[in-house]
């Protein structure tokens, strides 16, 4: 145990926790926006996989990480349009169509990878970007300011998303549409247009989350995300539909995962004990959900398609 509590290992664990939290955070922030407008997207996992593959493939072919990020966003956005048509225009049941999107993304990303790439070919992913001055701070600099660019983007999105939802006219529409779509509609707010935008942005962020995973790893493979997307959806509930809460949830997940890995690396937990530790984040989420659901309510119109005039 003593090995773990050295300053350098602790700092490294914190830094790793932040890095691991990033894909969760990006996807969960996008999902938060969608859910605040009353749309549940269970397909995050599938969108992440497609975004991850798109980013990986673009970077592999062009050697431009930037293009990879853009493609990740674009693929996510495109899936957002599809999901918007399905759930808004066709008013499909959101939970099930999300599962459909997940299965579609899982299959298509694997199919394209096998046909277009095949053998695992590494790419030069995102390197760490040290922030001048801040990066030189003792301890803090190492943990917070030696990360890849998408980590900064993700954490800067937290206040941005908070501002968007709580302090802008658009955000007000989003909240209105998510709570009482009929009232919003009667005030002249287009429910579906608002939801199309939130779904588009939310899915684009899911695509970016996938891209962050693929570019951080510098590789793609079948089912790369391995449940990240579903956990991101859970984190929205965990964070009680507030960006800061979502960030806290993502950090808990990231830090716990980082700690488990460090412990295993240093031989603090071995073999079967590791499985027990591996359950910890899931058990924790359930406990938090039990507490959170008592305290706060979800957007009232969540999963409910809007229909005018009845």
């Amino acid at each position: 145990m003593s090995d773990f509590f050295t300053v350098s290992v602790l700092l490294a664990t914190l830094a790793a926790g932040i890095r691991l939290a990033t894909p969760f955070l990006l996807a969960a922030l996008g999902e938060t926006l969608g859910q605040r407008s009353g749309v549940l997207n269970l397909g995050v996992e599938g969108v992440m996989l497609l975004g991850a593959y798109g980013a990986y493939y673009a970077t592999l072919r062009t050697e431009s990480v930037l293009l990879g990020i853009v493609i990740g966003l674009a693929v996510g956005g495109a899936m957002g349009i599809v999901y918007g048509v399905v759930t808004l225009a066709l008013k499909a049941e959101q939970g099930i169509s999300g599962i459909g999107i997940f299965i579609f993304g899982l299959g298509l990303s694997d199919l394209l990878f096998q046909k277009q790439v095949g053998t695992p070919t590494p790419i030069d992913g995102l390197g760490d970007l040290a922030i001048p001055v801040l990066g030189d701070l003792p301890w803090v600099g190492e943990v917070l300011f030696h990360q890849n660019v998408l980590v900064y983007v993700a954490f800067l999105l937290v206040p941005a998303m908070w501002y968007l939802i709580n302090r802008t006219p658009f955000g007000m529409n989003v909240r209105a549409v998510g709570e009482t779509p009929e009232a919003a509609d009667s005030l002249g707010v287009s429910v579906n247009r608002t939801r199309y935008i939130t779904i588009f942005v939310g899915n684009a962020l899911a695509g970016l989350a996938g891209a962050s995973l693929a570019l951080e790893l510098g590789i793609f493979q079948q089912n790369l995300t391995n449940g990240h997307g579903f956990i991101a959806v859970a984190l929205v509930y965990f964070g009680a539909w507030r960006p800061v809460g979502v960030m806290a949830g993502s950090m808990v997940f990231g830090l716990v995962s980082a700690m488990v890995l460090q412990w295993k690396t240093l031989g603090i937990v071995v073999g079967t004990t590791a499985s027990i530790v591996g359950m910890f984040p899931a058990v924790l989420t359930i406990l938090v959900l039990v507490l959170v659901s008592r305290r706060t309510g979800s957007p009232s119109a969540l999963t409910r398609p809007f229909e005018r005039g009845h």
Binding site: A16, Q221, L224, T225, N226, L261
Partner: peptide, 20 residues
Amino acid sequence: IDSFSDVALAAEAAQAHIEA
């Protein structure tokens, strides 16, 4: 890491080794 296929976990394990 208890998995033959989880590359993300493998990457983090490598990262943890390097940090150690």
